[in-house]
């Protein structure tokens, strides 16, 4: 079998970029609040739907779709924390209760999407998949083919990494996020408004999930399970990168992107279904947790 390895590398870069955008929010909120928010998958789906509504139903174009989806889903993320998780944590809920609540919340959000679609037909939301109508130009660089969407995905991931790096290291809020993540009590004692820091992170995290939802939706389709379909690689990135570790997540996203695309080549060579590609992320997740539960965090300074 002839494999175009240059193309495999480019595909890995695209996959990795998407996973990075999709995982940053989860890893930051997980690190700050100390529990995995399973409703995070629904932020991705919701982002796809809001983006689809703005870009396709309203015809306002993709840039507007990204901004609106970021803001709307960001507010949803903030409200989830403020309305449910924060009161629960204050009443001394255990981590199991918080996780169950996040699954319940995910269930509510996922099924609210088609309900909204039924009551407001203009949204164009339903269980049936919707497709972005934007067509992307394909570029050929030698043996490698790239679409405009892929270039935007890579560009966004790079821009996100740079912006977040400067946000986390150079700004007050970024330093406050890192301080709260590593030691909430000390952060509080140092005069940091820990609550506000957590709120802002939940807003940013959900907003970034929404951006990933649009990229994923434009690449495949938008439906209420869009986010759930990505939950495995997203959790694999968070675990491999080390919970709450942004630099670890960058490395992990590209490692998993590469492993998945090489895995697809291997699965094809073995005559197995390529739908097993998410199994590769699962294997990485399991191996990480057995061998080094703190992930790649040891290679990076804490963020």
């Amino acid at each position: 079998m002839d494999v175009n390895w240059a193309q495999v590398l480019v595909n890995s870069l695209v996959t990795g970029s998407l996973y990075l955008i999709a995982s940053v929010g989860l890893t930051l909120t997980y690190g700050l609040s100390g529990f995995p928010n399973f409703a995070y998958a629904e932020y991705i789906s919701l982002g796809g739907f809001v983006g689809y509504f703005v870009a396709d139903e309203l015809g306002a174009g993709l840039p507007a779709a990204f901004i609106v989806a970021f803001l709307v889903v960001g507010v949803v993320g903030f409200l989830c924390y403020r309305g449910i998780f924060q009161p629960m944590a204050r009443r001394g809920a255990t981590i199991i209760h918080l996780m169950v609540a996040s699954i319940a919340l995910g269930l509510i959000l996922r099924h609210l999407i088609p309900v909204f679609g039924d009551f407001i037909p203009a949204l164009g939301w339903s269980w049936a998949p919707s497709y972005f109508t934007i067509t992307w130009v394909a570029f050929d660089f030698g043996p490698v083919r790239l679409t405009g969407l892929w270039l935007w995905t890579i560009f966004t991931a790079v821009a996100l990494s740079v912006v977040l790096h400067f946000l986390l290291t150079r700004t007050r809020i970024g330093k406050a996020i890192r301080a709260t993540s590593s030691n909430p009590d000390l952060a509080l004692a140092s005069g940091i408004d820990v609550e506000k820091v957590i709120w802002i992170t939940w807003f940013l995290g959900a907003g970034l999930a929404a951006v990933a939802g649009i990229f994923r939706g434009a690449e495949t389709q938008v439906w209420p399970m869009t986010g759930w379909e990505m939950i495995l690689p997203v959790f694999a990135v968070v675990m491999l990168g080390g919970i709450g570790n942004f630099y670890g997540a960058i490395a992990a996203a590209f490692i998993i992107g590469l492993a998945e695309n090489i895995g697809v080549v291997a699965l094809t060579a073995l005559g197995l279904s390529t739908s097993y590609r998410i199994g590769i992320a699962f294997l990485i997740l399991i191996i990480t947790l057995i061998v080094k539960p703190q992930g790649l965090a040891m290679f990076f300074r804490r963020s």
């Binding site: 009161p87 099924h111 309900v115 009551f119």
Partner: peptide, 25 residues
């Protein structure tokens, strides 16, 4: 109902569990 009731059923399930967790854990 003007909407698919099975969606509402799942939403009710979710709300039920949140209420239990918040008020009668």
């Amino acid at each position: 109902l003007p909407t698919d009731a099975s969606n509402l059923q799942y939403i009710l399930f979710g709300v039920l569990i949140l209420l239990v967790l918040l008020y009668r854990p």
